[in-house]
Write a protein that binds this DNA or RNA. Structure first.
Lengths: 138, 138
DNA sequence: CTTATAATTGAAAATGATTTTCAATATCAT
DNA sequence: ATGATATTGAAAATCATTTTCAATTATAAG
């Protein structure tokens, strides 16, 4: 369970542990899919009915800042979040069920180097995302 | 100049050629940078002061639909557009001046195949974007 | 070159997402 | 237990985008 580790990290960074945060963290940490703030809000209110949407936004902000979650960019919009990849990991999204899978991107390095050479840019960051159908949906 | 070709394509697809559209097309086709709707609006009004922001949105929508421009996803937001790449081309963005450069991504195919093999997904689409400093800015 | 039709326009209002403000409340170090 | 301070949720404000609608304009047909 990532939940515990995320809560610890929030606390270690000076944030207080509240019921609202616990509820939000629990929902995203447990989800296989990327969730929008409203989806998190709806799901978390089952556990904690007085939760406010604003608090969801604020908690997501902190989790993103700590590198625990990342924003997911999709054709339909860019407001969903999912567990962040470690280091060179990237996202693979199922277009049908929404499942988010991480994969390793180390092998991209040579390719990126060659783009840098050809274009004259110094490349600092890359952003790579794949879309398809997962094993269950294809 | 892409302007002329874009206008022709609009017309060929049944859209009328209006002063408003001409102004919008001229601005994006000429820009090296990705522009937001408001940036296009401001720039185009120098030529055509009665232009409405709504028309900018509607024109961008059509240009995107025809594959002439594409949305650019950046850490600061995902509302800017720039000239679309052909086929397997991808975007390289300068973090300082905002310049958008296209590069070829054919070599990604093997890599994507290997991800498909490892994850069990059928991969249909990929999004790849690089960020860095262009020759002038680095 | 007119004219008729249908697409297009811009303003205003509506919608949707996100942020700010603020007084009440809850956490946590002491 | 208590107090300082972070956090909360509601409401309002802001920002991006879409819809509605009556007036205007491009273009095909005469």
């Amino acid at each position: 369970m990532a939940t515990k580790s995320w809560l610890t990290q929030l606390q270690d960074n000076g944030y207080r542990l509240t019921t609202a945060r616990r509820a939000v963290v629990e929902i995203i940490a447990a989800s296989q899919r990327a969730l929008t703030p409203v989806e998190v809000y709806d799901a978390a209110r089952d556990q904690y009915p007085t939760l406010g949407l604003v608090t969801v936004y604020r908690t997501l902000e902190k989790l993103e800042e700590l590198g625990l979650i990342q924003r997911v960019h999709r054709p339909q919009g860019c407001q969903a979040f999912t567990t962040a990849g470690q280091g060179h990991q990237h996202l693979l999204l199922c277009s049908k069920c929404g499942r988010a899978t991480l994969f390793d991107g180390d092998d991209l390095d040579q390719f990126i180097q060659s783009v840098a050479r050809k274009t004259g840019y110094r490349i600092n960051e890359h952003w790579f995302q794949l879309f398809g159908l997962c094993e269950n949906c294809k």
